[in-house]
Design a protein around this nucleic acid. Structure first.
Length: 309
DNA sequence: ATGGTTTTTACTGCGTC
DNA sequence: GACGCGGTAAAAACCAT
């Protein structure tokens, strides 16, 4: 009963449908074995039927430690028929309520889970990430707990790593630095936790790191740059992509180099200093990438569209 | 722990406005 | 002279072994 189409934006879902893990690259909708199908699962024959059968309550969610399915014993002192309880029963109910609340998050596993999921929501909130990312990250974290990957690891670390992986899966371009900062971690330790997660085999569909084009777009967004520069930078990146100049190099630096070269080709000089700053690398790195690109490829003037103005 | 690779830091020289 | 650019050497960071 796999879905091939995103119910939200009608995009084609990608991922491994057989394993029950597919997602929409556009809006980040995740369809998995417990996917929430927003449409009704029955055919409506008449209006009365529809009213009777409509489902109520929140959809179940990964981002709450008990999937949002907890039951509370009310403090009103009424029974299920709305009648008030007698003195003895009221005391019983109060004791039960106390213990029920205590038990729900008392086992250490449940407790770390609820703390971690809260942390995930908090990080996502700070980065203005959509709730679909929170869901995906929560799902990932649950898996990591189940496979005891997160054993004796810091909660914020694993939360950050889950978010990072969720972003990768949904093609949302966020750096470890950004996520780490939101989680109160250094880039270095955030990378460490993300690595742990990656090596654990939690990742069921291989998610390639984002292409340089993504970095270029991101870099251009931060600074007001002529769109034609961006277009040319993307074109250059695509033409040069087949080569192996990018292996092992900071993608941000490479993106900066393409943008810089593109700007020069259009005759719009953007100071290296600025580009480097927005790409979060040093000028030296930008220069090195530029040199490598220009060494490897003869960029002919013909490549550039003839019309300048 | 160690070594190889990459990035950063810091400094210098060159040309231009 | 300030500024942007290019290069270099050494330190720091990163990664795989």
């Amino acid at each position: 009963m796999g879905i091939n189409e995103c119910p939200i934006c009608r995009n084609r879902l990608i991922g491994d449908a057989d394993k029950g893990e597919t997602f929409c690259p556009k809006c980040g909708f995740v369809a998995n074995d417990q996917a929430i199908d927003p449409s009704a699962e029955w055919k409506s024959s008449n209006y009365e039927d529809r009213l009777k059968r409509s489902r109520v309550g929140m959809p179940s969610t990964y981002s709450l430690h008990d999937y949002g399915l907890s039951t509370d014993i009310s403090a009103e002192g009424k029974d299920s028929h709305g009648r008030y309880l007698g003195q003895m029963n009221r005391m019983d109910a109060q004791r039960m309520r106390k213990w029920q609340a205590r038990i729900r998050t008392s086992s250490s596993g449940e407790r770390t889970l609820s703390i971690a999921l809260a942390k995930i929501s908090e990080i996502a909130d700070q980065l203005n990430l959509p709730s679909s990312i929170v869901e995906e990250a929560s799902h990932i974290f649950r898996k990591s707990v189940k496979q005891s990957v997160s054993k004796s690891k810091s909660i914020s670390g694993m939360a950050a790593a889950s978010i990072m992986l969720a972003c990768r899966r949904t093609m949302v371009n966020r750096t470890l630095k950004e996520i780490g900062a939101a989680a109160g971690l250094t880039e270095r330790s955030a990378a460490k936790y993300f690595r742990v997660l990656q090596m654990s085999g939690i990742e069921m569909v291989y998610v390639p790191p984002p292409p340089i084009q993504k970095y270029i777009s991101k870099l251009v967004n931060n600074e007001k740059i002529n769109p034609r520069v961006e277009r040319l930078a993307l074109e250059l990146a695509e033409k040069a992509n087949e080569s192996e100049i990018s292996s092992g190099k900071t993608p941000g630096g490479l993106a900066a180099a393409y943008v810089y070269i593109a700007a020069v080709m259009w005759g719009e000089h953007i100071p290296q200093r600025e580009i480097a700053e927005f790409a979060d690398v040093t000028e030296v790195t930008v220069r090195n990438r530029c040199r490598e690109i220009l060494e490897k490829f003869v960029i002919r003037q013909k490549l550039k569209p003839a019309i300048t103005k």
